[in-house]
């Protein structure tokens, strides 16, 4: 158990990655020569309007898609397919309705060798407690609120102890109150168990609240434009004026990129 909780976070290196999709109207470039390095334990937010390739980049890092050109490396090793070292949290919770809360968290643990059933239950309990859901372990997914579902999804993603956590707009479908609670939770959890995180969002304030770094994307085709380092003290409050000020600055930069883009 102790050993399980102590694998170090990984370093990501994304080098000149492009990806296009074939649609009825021909090839649509989704992401063009993206290069990005994410340090061990860094929390990086990818921000941009729809169609800017930020989710595509996340899927490439997850190994759910393969890049057309360029490479995605984790600790110097090329990513060739999905693996439990890089867990994904989706916008829709993607929890399995045929399993209860505990069963969902254990699902990924069952695919991890070197654990017996008792240890799996222990690990699942630990993470459900971490997200504050130890009391609904036996509940069905449909009985939970949207915020609780995303907490279960977070526990499920954390439980196999991935070295990288990939989050694709995980809070977009939640109400503001629930989101704010989850911002606090995410920061608390990440402080206790630091991981390398890539977090996709189109909410600039959310990005500034959570990230060590914010990467701006622009659409058509998706490109990385600019980056901002956020060195506000933690834990951060989304309503903090300093945070709002920086978010405003980033939003202006984002608008600039999008406008330049549409004028071209």
């Amino acid at each position: 158990m102790q050993d399980e909780l102590n694998t170090p976070p990984a370093k990501l290196h994304i080098d000149g990655v492009s990806k296009s999709f074939t649609s009825k109207r021909g090839k649509v470039p989704a992401l063009e020569s993206a290069t990005l390095t994410v340090d061990e334990g860094e929390f990086v937010c990818l921000v941009g309007p729809s169609g800017c390739g930020k989710s595509t980049l996340l899927n490439l890092v997850a190994g759910l898609e393969a890049p057309d050109t360029g490479s995605v490396m984790m600790d110097g090793k090329r990513v060739t397919g999905p693996g439990s070292q890089r867990m994904v949290m989706f916008q829709e919770h993607a929890l399995f309705p045929w399993l209860d809360v505990l069963g969902n968290v254990i699902f990924g643990l069952k695919l991890k060798p070197g654990l017996n059933d008792k240890e799996r239950v222990e690990v699942a309990h630990y993470y459900l407690k971490l997200v504050g859901l130890e009391r609904v372990m036996r509940a069905s997914i449909h009985e939970l609120s949207g915020g609780m579902r995303q907490r279960v999804a977070l526990a499920r993603a954390l439980a196999p102890n991935p070295r990288v956590l990939l989050m694709d707009e995980p809070f977009a479908a939640l109400d503001a109150m629930t989101r704010e609670q989850l911002y606090a939770d995410i920061q608390r959890i990440n402080q206790a168990r630091q991981r390398t995180v890539l977090f996709v969002t189109h909410n600039v304030r959310e990005a500034v609240c959570l990230g060590n770094r914010v990467i701006l994307f622009s659409p058509n085709p998706g490109r990385i434009r600019e980056q901002f380092v956020v060195d506000l003290p933690r834990p951060r409050d989304i309503n903090d004026p300093a945070l709002a000020g920086l978010a405003g600055e980033i939003t202006r930069a984002l608008k600039g990129h999008t406008r330049v883009q549409s004028a071209e």
Binding site: L64, P82, G83, S84, R86, V88, F90, A94, F107, L111
Partner: peptide, 12 residues
């Protein structure tokens, strides 16, 4: 499709 995608990322 999200079920199989989620399972895939968990190593299934």
């Amino acid at each position: 499709p999200i079920y199989t995608r989620a399972a895939l990322t968990m190593g299934s």
